[in-house]
Design a protein around this nucleic acid. Structure first.
Length: 266
DNA sequence: ATGGTTGAATATCAA
């Protein structure tokens, strides 16, 4: 089975590219982030024509996450238990969606952007990650043998080598110690980054800012990851970043991350 | 020009 995660930066602007990607790489399950649309605006029919069922949550032009699957889509859940909200009044944002696809619990995640170190969004981001780690820990305790993967745009570069310049990111978000500690706390809940071993750095990125010619200059960040439970991680046979998807007209600012899974033996 | 691009919606906001 082949899974992938991709921050598409608007599904409506990118749908032809996304469908072509699914077919080109024979992807079974795609976790999508930043659809930037409401549920009623999602291009479901184009996915169905390509053989994929879709679950989506989107409230407005911001955020929005989805899962497209051609191997089943069960137990769909918006958000996760304990997910913090934002705003006044506080409300859940469309940043998390899970479903069971061919026995794997897939969680599509769009972790909040902290904006700047002293912005209220940063505290929100850290609390969001803390609650996510608690959710992951609770799931592990409840079903230790379950194959679970948390995949998406984490908006964190866990290692210095995950950014093109630590000097550039001094006193900026994505690389701060509190964010990195929050990411490690999710790993400590019993998950493994299944992508890095197959895509070792330095200089391996999943995101390049649209401005400043960052992509041709190879100045990016590695911020998109798939974190698997032991039962999931044990089945991973390969992973790669499809850098080709960042090229050309109409590219998202993120590249897809693909994970291959061996069949389950029982 | 000092956010230089992109995309939502359509004047700004977000990334």
């Amino acid at each position: 089975m082949r899974l992938a995660t991709w921050n598409v930066n608007s599904i409506r602007a990118r749908v032809d590219r996304v469908i072509a990607f699914l077919e080109r790489h024979d992807v079974d399950v795609l976790a999508i982030q930043e659809t930037k649309c409401r549920d009623d605006q999602f291009p479901y029919l184009l996915f169905e024509s390509a053989g994929y069922e879709v679950a989506h949550v989107g409230h407005n032009q911001w955020n929005g996450v989805a899962i497209a699957s051609r191997v089943g889509l069960a137990e769909v859940q918006e958000g996760f238990d304990g997910m913090p909200g934002w705003g006044d009044p506080v409300a859940a944002e469309a940043r998390a969606l899970s479903a069971v696809c061919a026995g794997v619990r897939v969680v599509s995640l769009y972790i909040p952007n902290g904006r700047s170190l002293d912005d209220p969004h940063m505290a929100y981001k850290l609390q969001w990650l803390e609650r996510l780690a608690a959710y992951a820990g609770a799931r592990r305790a409840a079903a230790p043998d379950e194959a679970v993967v948390l995949m998406g745009d984490w908006n964190i570069a866990p290692l210095d080598e995950d950014v093109w310049s630590m000097a550039f990111y001094e006193n900026k978000t994505h690389v701060s110690e509190p964010e990195r500690a929050a990411f490690r706390a999710v790993l400590d809940a019993g998950l493994t980054d299944v992508t890095r071993p197959f895509t070792p750095g330095p200089g391996v990125y999943t995101y390049w800012d649209y401005t400043q010619l960052r992509f041709p200059k190879r100045q990016g960040m590695r911020i998109d990851f798939a974190l698997g439970s032991p039962a999931f991680a044990a089945r991973v046979t390969d992973a790669f970043i499809d850098r080709e998807e960042r090229k050309g007209k109409g590219a998202s600012d993120h590249a897809p991350v693909v994970v291959d899974l061996a069949p389950q033996f029982s």
